[in-house]
Amino acid sequence: MINDKAVGKWVNHLEQIVGNAAKTIANKHGFLYAVMASLAAAGTIPTNPCENTNLPRVDQAEMVFLEEDEFDALIHEIPKRWRIFVKFLVASGARFGEVSALQVGDIDRKRNTGRIRRAWKYTGGERVIGRPKTKRSNRTIDLAAELIAELPLAGRPREAWLFTNDSGGPVHITTFYKQVWAPAIERLLAAAGDPLDGKKPRIHDLRHTCASWMLCDNVPLHVVQRHLGHESITTTSDRYGHLDRRSGAVAAAVIGAKLSHGPKPKPALAVVEGRGAA
């Protein structure tokens, strides 16, 4: 019988015996939760035994921001066939599942924009095409004309995948990571002079790098929010607000201006007419 105790033991088994990561456990539990919720709604079982499961804490992976010279070092280690794909990831700030789901018709060469309206998702272990992560993730982003000029657009039908694997199908993140990304990072880490300054970027860190480049060059926070497709500007601020130093610089300038004048002289005592010095 599956009850809350059985689910708890199963979660402990996944963590302590199988060695699954907290996020993997959360994904597996989420699938079971959905199944149990359907059975409970149909009256097959009285309640959902996954309702109050204590799950391992999912720690947010530390973000890595690449400097321009570090990205240049990275892009030169990426095989030429994949360089435009990696450049598009950092320029768009889009998620891998969004970029790999783009079609030729999503790129507007006249307006220099890209339309993000679909993304790859995993359902029951299968990769399926669906809507982007949130409502705001369905968006149009501005792209540099020079970048669009490099895209494989000429002579291709609108419904063709913008970026493809060697078989002509959409790019799969697992294959790309194993065959392209990981080997490039390993070569950089083994190179003399440490081109990445000790950093070990993930593919998703290209999205963080996009945000950091924009904010460090004074792009307003709300523009970055729309470009990345965050549902709320609070999300953008919480994740990247520390990179936007403009408000802090203004505050520092205000205090600095006050300090630069030094102490004000005390006002001179007025001499009262008719009274001499004592």
Rank of each mutant, 00 (worst) to 15 (best):
N3L: 06
N3G: 15
K5F: 08
A6Y: 08
V7H: 02
G8D: 12
G8F: 04
E15W: 05
G19N: 10
N20Y: 10
N20W: 09
A22Q: 00
I25T: 14
K28C: 11
H29F: 03
G30P: 06
G30Q: 00
G30S: 02
Y33A: 00
V35E: 02
S38V: 10
A40H: 00
A41D: 05
I45G: 11
T53N: 09
N54D: 05
R57T: 07
R57F: 00
Q60M: 02
M63T: 01
L66M: 09
L66Y: 08
E70R: 06
L74W: 11
I75Q: 03
H76K: 07
P79N: 13
V86Q: 07
V86C: 13
L89N: 13
L89F: 12
E98G: 04
S100A: 15
A101Q: 13
L102R: 02
G105C: 05
R109K: 02
R111C: 06
W120H: 11
Y122L: 08
G124R: 10
G130M: 00
G130A: 02
R131L: 09
P132L: 12
T134N: 14
K135L: 10
K135T: 13
R136F: 01
R136L: 05
N138K: 10
T140A: 01
L143Y: 08
L143W: 08
A144E: 10
P152Y: 03
A154G: 00
P157C: 03
P157H: 03
E159G: 00
W161G: 02
L162E: 01
G168W: 15
P170A: 13
V171K: 08
F176C: 01
K178Q: 11
K178L: 14
K178R: 15
V180Q: 08
V180I: 15
E186H: 09
A192G: 06
D197N: 14
R202S: 10
H204E: 02
T209Y: 11
C210W: 03
S212G: 01
C216E: 15
N218Y: 04
P220M: 14
P220S: 08
P220Q: 12
H222Q: 03
V223R: 07
H227D: 02
H227N: 13
L228T: 11
E231I: 02
I233A: 15
D238Y: 04
G241A: 10
H242W: 15
R245E: 08
R246I: 12
S247N: 01
G248F: 08
A252E: 07
G256L: 06
H261E: 09
H261N: 09
A268F: 01
A268T: 04
A268Q: 05
G274V: 00
